[in-house]
Every structure is written in C-alpha cells, then in structure tokens.
C-alpha cells in the first residue's frame, strides 16, 4: 500500500543484443494500417459527402465562420 509503484516482477534480464522488439513492430504496424485506413476513409467522409469546399456548401461556410 505504501509503495508508490509496483516493484516490477522481473523474471529475467534481457540485454541489448538479446532483445528483439517484434511486438513493437506488430503494434506500430497495426497503427500504420489504422492510419492508412482512416486516410482512405476520410475521402468518403469528406469529399464525397460534401459540396466542394470553401467555394460552396453551406455546412462548410458555417464551419469557416
């Protein structure tokens, strides 16, 4: 209770040469896929859903004001 952070239950010591951050690659790869998907998805959300921006489209005008 009085300890502020858990003493990490360390089971093994992994040094620089032994460590292969494959999980990081997996996680960052997943993030990249999400970003790429969102980037493509944005086209459908914005450009197909609205009139041309700035020069027309009431919704956008409200946004600009």
């Amino acid at each position: 209770m009085s300890r502020l952070t858990e003493e990490p239950a360390q089971r093994q010591e992994i040094d620089h040469d032994e460590y292969d951050p494959i999980g990081t690659l997996a996680l960052i790869g997943l993030y990249f896929l999400i970003l790429a998907f969102l980037w493509v998805f944005m086209y459908f959300v914005e450009f197909l859903g609205n009139e041309p921006t700035v020069v027309g489209g009431f919704v956008t005008v409200v946004g600009v004001l």
Partner: peptide, 10 residues
C-alpha cells in the same frame, strides 16, 4: 515498454 513486458515474462 515491450522490453519491460518481456523481462516480466511476456
């Protein structure tokens, strides 16, 4: 973080 997790048996 992953280094910590692997040292903790992950």
């Amino acid at each position: 973080m992953e280094h910590g997790a692997r040292q903790r048996g992950g």
